[in-house]
Design a protein around this nucleic acid. Structure first.
Length: 429
RNA sequence: UCCUCGGUAGCUCAAUCGGCAGAGCGGGUGGCUGUUAACCACUAGGUUGGGGGUUCAAGUCCCUCCCGGGGAGCCA
């Protein structure tokens, strides 16, 4: 009977078949210990010379790291085996050989590992991180789907800069130019006028020459957008969302987080309420802690780390100086110099997870913003129409998915949180 | 684009003041009946990133180019 390794506990004493790959092997003359891997877990298989055919014993002695194989044997409990169950082998069949597998069970440098990303994925750590990624995405979708959000995905080819700031990748488009989207937000703003609550979740592209642990050129962004929602409501939503997603991942990925050595007490503290401080207050904190920071500018990586470390859970920073924020953000009616924008910073130097805002819903104000930011009005006529025909107050946010996964996993660099990272100096594999 | 660190065996690294290019892992061969990145013995494996220069002598010093890591700016 063919079973997966994570089903072994239901088959104690049964003769079963495991199909997988050889993770590692140890040998003691008349005894071979095979560590098997099948995608669901690791399991030790013992091949004893006097219990199998001569051919099977020789086959198992010649197995090499990462060859694929089918192993038949009896399941028993064994605390010394990873996973707690062991297979007493009756037969071994080599399926696909693996000669000179490049990634050995020793240390490797990051360049080598990224060059071999297609094989690196098989390692315990990468398997765990990508499993957490999948569960995090599922938890996010479930949260939004169960609360009436409609998932509508936005285009990737765009004619213009959505925010008019970041560098975009330009591509040929039937003799003209198109750009790869860096955000779906503006399109989602159109969608909420039909659906009320929507979200998009997909890849976004930035050709910024950023070589840091927090940047990829292709990354995934989750962007909910909600009609009739103000800035405080947006923070309420973000807070409830993060708390619930983290709780679900803690519950479903306990094993993976253990493999990663993640201090889960940090994640268990992610409970309501998150501190909410103004930009002005954040600037004071930075001044108190002696940071080299100029009021009126955006926070640098070091500033974000200081602010993140100042609290035991993610922290909201709201009411930003309007002139360092995007054109579509609504001004604070009580202080015209401030934008109704909010960033959510994570602890432990993982930086900005979310950027959100209440959007400008007044036609004349928005026209003024476009001029101030020197953006061509003709590309935004459709967006202005949303203010001409039944405009409503509305808000939304964009969550950097890899940064969030990196924070949950505690990985120092987000390149490990995506299957094949795209970086400034890396397009392959 | 700027700052900074690095490039030596398949991998991770060492090589003192400029003086015979080495180790561990991985590979191969042999040994071992409970191993946990198993262990023990033997063995093969090198254009020291490329080019130029200084020197009796360069992995090591100088110039230059290439590639990469970390960071800044920018951003999620």
């Amino acid at each position: 009977m063919y079973i997966y390794i994570n089903e072994a506990s239901h088959h104690l004493g049964d003769e079963v078949e495991i199909r997988g790959w050889l993770y590692n092997k140890r040998s003691s003359g008349k005894l071979h210990f095979l560590i098997l891997r099948d995608g669901t877990g690791l399991m030790q298989a013992v091949v004893s010379k006097k219990e199998v055919s001569e051919e099977a014993f020789e086959t198992s002695g010649n197995l090499t790291q990462e060859c694929s194989l089918i192993v038949t044997g009896k399941v028993s409990e064994e605390p010394r085996s990873p996973g707690g169950y062991e297979l007493h082998v009756t037969d071994v069949k080599l399926v696909g050989k693996s000669e000179d597998y490049p990634i050995t069970p020793k240390e490797h440098g990051i360049e080598f590992l990224l060059d071999h990303r297609h094989l690196w994925l098989r390692s315990k750590r990468q398997h765990a991180i990508l499993k957490v990624r999948a569960e995090t995405a599922a938890a996010m979708r479930e949260y939004l789907n169960s609360r009436g959000f409609v998932n509508l995905d936005t285009p990737i080819f765009t004619p213009n800069a959505c925010e008019g700031t970041s560098d975009l990748f330009e591509t040929e488009y039937f003799g003209g130019s198109a750009y790869l989207a860096q955000s779906g937000q503006l399109y989602s703003e159109a969608a909420i006028m039909s659906f009320g609550k929507v979200y998009c979740f997909g890849p976004t592209f930035r050709s910024e020459k950023s070589k840091t642990r927090r940047h990829l050129t292709e990354f995934w962004m989750l962007e909910p957008e909600v009609a009739w929602l103000d800035l405080d409501g947006c923070m309420d939503l973000e807070e409830d969302f993060i708390v619930e997603v983290v709780a679900r991942v803690l519950d479903r990925c306990a094993e993976e987080l253990k493999v990663l050595g993640r201090d889960t007490s940090v994640l268990e503290k992610v409970q309501k309420p998150f501190p909410r401080i103004t930009y002005d207050r954040a600037a004071e904190i930075l001044k108190e802690k002696g940071a080299d920071f100029t009021y009126g500018t955006d926070f640098g990586g070091a500033d974000e780390t200081i602010l993140g470390e100042s609290f035991d859970r993610p922290v909201f920073i709201h009411h930003w100086p309007a002139d360092i924020k995007a054109f579509y953000m609504k001004r604070d009616p009580n202080d015209y110099s401030k934008a109704l924008a909010v960033d959510l910073l994570a602890s432990e130097g993982h930086g900005e997870l979310i950027g959100g805002s209440q959007r400008e819903d007044d036609l004349d104000e928005l026209l003024k913003r476009l001029k101030e930011h020197d953006l061509p009005q003709k590309y935004f006529e459709w967006y202005l129409d949303l203010r001409r025909y039944g405009s409503v107050p509305h808000s939304g946010f964009g969550l950097g998915f890899e940064r969030t996964v990196g924070w949950i996993c505690g990985t120092p660099h987000i390149r490990e949180t995506i299957l094949f990272p795209r970086l400034m100096h890396r397009l392959e594999p």
